[in-house]
């Protein structure tokens, strides 16, 4: 597969997943505000979202103050924000356009339809009538794309790059959604484990479509350490961090053709993902809290970025060398020559 194509598939998938997660976060938090508004510090709540998205600087340049409307606008429609839903859908489609021959007709049509709808008057109308409907539509659009991808695209190398992008993004977003809770302080007078605290943890689960799966799994109270355990370590929930890392590790091995048994790896990205997977499997929730949840999640995001970098270096790096003259002395490199 062409390196440029692999790169475009990876990002097309990542941006679609990112649009979806933005929509989830906005939807859940808008609803959360309805529940906790009487008690909570509105401004500080929205500030924490911008903070976990690591977009505080850009936000402050564009908006005079932090309000719910401003944050929703920034995360949804702001063109100058490269991570807004607007930008994500535009970038995903732009990437798709460059690799249409790799996509099934259905995939392209779905991604194009989302793009065209989002920029039509209909989308704005729906948003003004009901933000719930609007974000649900984005979520469904992304799910439809992922389902259509599974059902109509060849499950070959390109598909694995799409999976890589999707799971890396999802792992990152799940960790950030969990992190929001760290930044939202409880209103004064509220108890840890009290009513508002529980509602906030439930909102975290809802942001990941995890509330009902959580209840099925634990059949009881929503408790902080159990929420963390579920979203970090549950092996069967498709948005938990360990599930995502396991899946991307699997895809990486499919791409390199290296057997996954006996912890084998050939390329650096495989080593990093394998190591992260092992850590996730064997760490306990106690250890996470002792290290500090925020610190743990922060490191997690760092390690996911390292994997992304290693993937690019391994499969796509020479795209940047396009302007260099070929070296006459060096023999043509017909196989990837990498040390393991």
């Amino acid at each position: 597969m062409l390196s440029r194509v692999a790169d475009a598939l990876f990002w097309l998938s990542r941006y679609t997943e990112r649009a979806e997660n933005n929509a989830r976060m906005m939807d859940v938090n808008l609803q959360l505000m309805l529940d906790v508004q009487p008690f909570a510090n509105n401004r500080q709540h929205w500030e924490s979202i911008i903070f976990t998205l690591e977009d505080t600087k850009l936000f402050n340049q564009l908006y005079p103050e932090i309000t719910g409307d401003a944050v929703v606008d920034f995360v949804t429609f702001e063109r100058k924000n490269p991570n807004s839903i607007y930008s994500c859908l535009a970038t995903a489609r732009e990437n798709a356009r460059t690799v249409r021959e790799e996509l099934s007709v259905e995939m392209w049509e779905q991604i194009n339809r989302m793009y065209l709808f989002f920029f039509s008057g209909d989308a704005k109308r729906i948003f003004q009538n009901s933000t719930y409907e609007f974000f649900k539509w984005i979520l469904q659009g992304s799910h439809l794309f992922q389902g259509v991808t599974d059902a109509t695209m060849l499950h070959d190398e390109g598909w694995e790059f799409i999976r890589l992008g999707m799971f890396l993004e999802r792992a990152d977003r799940t960790s950030r959604i969990l992190d929001i809770k760290y930044h939202i302080l409880l209103p004064s007078g509220e108890q840890i484990g009290g009513n508002v605290d529980t509602i906030q943890w439930m909102a975290v689960l809802k942001s990941c479509s995890a509330l009902e799966p959580y209840r099925k799994h634990y059949r009881g109270q929503v408790l902080p350490w159990k929420v963390v355990e579920f979203l970090v370590k549950n092996q069967t929930f498709p948005r938990s961090i360990v599930f995502c890392v396991d899946s991307l590790d699997y895809s990486l091995h499919k791409i390199t053709g290296v057997d996954r048994g006996d912890f084998q790896y050939r390329v650096e990205a495989e080593r990093l993902s394998g190591k992260l997977l092992a850590d996730l499997c064997f760490i306990t929730v106690d250890e996470i809290f002792r290290a500090g949840l925020h610190e743990y999640l922060d490191r997690m995001q760092g390690r996911l970025i390292e994997i992304t970098k290693a993937i690019y270096k391994e499969f796509c790096e020479w795209l940047e060398e396009k302007d260099k003259e070929p070296q006459e002395t060096e023999p043509p490199q017909l196989q990837t020559q990498k040390s393991s």
Binding site: M1, L2, S3, E157, K322, P326, P332, Q333, L334
Partner: peptide, 25 residues
């Protein structure tokens, strides 16, 4: 069912044209 390439996807060496793929030239 063939690859679509741009100039930057191709490189020549010793009178042969190659494309840059995830598994080498």
């Amino acid at each position: 069912g063939i690859e679509i390439v741009v100039g930057a996807d191709l490189v020549t060496h010793d009178g042969v044209v190659y494309m840059k793929t995830t598994h080498g030239l």
